[in-house]
Simulated assay, not measured.
Amino acid sequence: MKLRLEENSLRLRLSEAEVQQFAATGRVAVALPLGPTATDTLTYALERAESEEFRVTYGAGAVTVKVPATLAAHWTGTDQNGLAATLLVAENQTLRILVEKDLDCRH
């Protein structure tokens, strides 16, 4: 899974295998070591949530994007390429979330 951060946006791109894992388990995560100890790790994850809204949580070196279960099921079960949402994270500050399938080109 690829993570891309830009000003006011967070984008996750999942391989075909990761999309299948997300469909089956409701979670896919990557741990990126940034130093010599286990606490020096950034974990980013995509999770299926029972809520009706997209959410992002951050804490203790982990960023998690939570996608409503109904949207997640439709996205993983169809040829729909992406999901998008804009969240209000602070007063007058939004964060654009993009979750996309990063599928190989098929010619």
Score class of each variant (00 low, 15 high):
R4W: 07
R4Y: 10
L5S: 13
L5K: 12
N8T: 13
N8I: 08
N8A: 15
L10I: 15
L10H: 06
L14Q: 04
E16L: 13
A17G: 11
V19K: 01
Q21L: 14
F22D: 10
G26N: 05
V28I: 13
A29T: 06
A29G: 07
L34W: 13
G35L: 12
P36R: 14
A38S: 15
D40Q: 15
D40T: 15
T41Q: 11
E47S: 13
R48H: 05
A49E: 08
E52R: 14
R55P: 01
V56D: 01
T64C: 10
V65W: 02
A69Q: 12
T70G: 06
L71N: 03
H74A: 12
T76Q: 01
T76G: 02
T76N: 01
G77N: 06
D79A: 11
D79W: 00
Q80G: 04
Q80F: 04
L83C: 03
L83V: 07
A85H: 01
L87I: 07
A90Y: 01
E91P: 02
N92M: 11
Q93F: 02
T94D: 08
L95F: 03
R96P: 00
I97M: 02
L98T: 08
L98N: 03
E100T: 04
E100D: 10
C105I: 08
R106F: 03
H107W: 05
H107A: 10
